[in-house]
Design a protein around this nucleic acid. Structure first.
Lengths: 201, 201
DNA sequence: TTCTTTCCATGACAATTGTCACCTGACAGT
DNA sequence: ACTGTCAGGTGACAATTGTCATGGAAAGAA
């Protein structure tokens, strides 16, 4: 019997999935949570066989919880269940040694099947991720350049950015200019849009 | 027996919910869809008693489908099921005469209970919405101003905006200036951020 | 009808933004 | 000791952006 814990912040999906998984003969849902803190508190007590974690949750993300589980050497396998294939998240999850990384964009049957495979010792990554890994562009900007871009993304003017980062206005303009040329764009708005699209922001 | 149709683009939730609702003695799920077009095609054929529609779907939104259902005078009640309480969506839904507007941030039991109440003739709006309605700020921008702001949000320069909207560059700057003063901000970036925060974009 | 308001439009002007060439000091590698 | 690279800086200049005063047309109210 697979003792499973479920953490998912959207109540509707949380309860629906919990009930459905519990119907399976070889799975018991030993607990659920709708935020990361509660999830970790419960998991460290219950020590389930498997923890199914959403990434985007209040208080602590599923990846934070995965790190905690690994750090505490619990006998609990981790499956990350998330909406979209973003390689940044995925890479962190692999580092945290998760046994599965699945997308919500698949029917429940598939989820159940994957849970069984994982409990049998397999490691399952959603195939979409491998593709995204290849095409994923890495952030060409330096840390300092990111600071400037973040400030610009908040709508701050050159002068304001200079003040908050303790730089001269000219330097800020230089940074922005360098950012634009690295990203191949012509102005702040385009730079910010591109950075957001690539999840660098 | 309630003949129910479910449209929800996230497959996991779609299948989970369909199975769970189908388990109820007085509910049959006569069909599901993961995009708006498919949903309308199926609903206009099946004429179910109730259509549960997500808003954010590919091809056509749940609200588009609700409009179509109302326009065709089908005997189908509509329930909108969505993630967050945004009054813009809500107002449009009310105009489309929906029988229910529920949030995904509630357990399945509640969904089922509300479905029964709605089929008994009730109209059910998630209470969170009433609160949001009061605090909801309405978009102070004119249609033309929104066109300009949208273009600016894409990173287009004044000149480019002017070309796509067949205006002079000066007029575009003027619109932007009016936008800034209406929104109480100083530049494009801030205006776009504010508009996105208020879901006007 | 006339008045007022709103939306849309224009061009002149000032301020800000983006580009460029070039300088300094710190630090890592050869 | 030399070289490259990186964070930070300057100032000049051109282009873009934001402000303002102003005018026309349509729609609703008097």
């Amino acid at each position: 019997m697979i003792r499973l814990f479920l953490a998912e912040d959207q109540s509707l999906l949380n309860t629906a999935l919990a009930q459905l998984l519990d119907l399976e003969d070889d799975i018991t849902v030993v607990g659920t949570a709708t935020d990361g803190q509660a999830a970790w508190a419960a998991i460290s007590q219950l020590k389930p066989d498997l923890a199914v974690l959403d990434i985007e949750m209040p208080k602590a993300t599923g990846l934070d919880v995965a790190d905690l589980i690994q750090g505490a050497h619990l006998p609990t396998k981790v499956v990350i269940l998330t909406t979209f294939a973003q390689s940044a998240y995925f890479q962190r999850a692999v580092k945290a040694g998760v046994a599965g990384y699945l997308l919500k964009d698949a029917p429940t049957d598939e989820l159940v099947a994957n849970i069984r495979r994982i409990m049998a010792g397999a490691t399952v990554y959603a195939p979409e991720l491998v593709q995204n890994m290849v095409t994923a562009s890495t952030n060409p900007l330096s840390e300092r350049e990111m600071d400037v871009l973040k400030a610009a993304a908040n709508g701050q003017s050159t002068k304001e950015i200079a003040q908050t980062l303790f730089l001269s206005a000219g330097t800020v303009r230089n940074y922005l200019s360098a950012i634009f040329s690295k990203l191949g764009v012509a102005n702040r708005m385009e730079a910010v849009n591109l950075a957001k699209r690539n999840k660098w922001l």
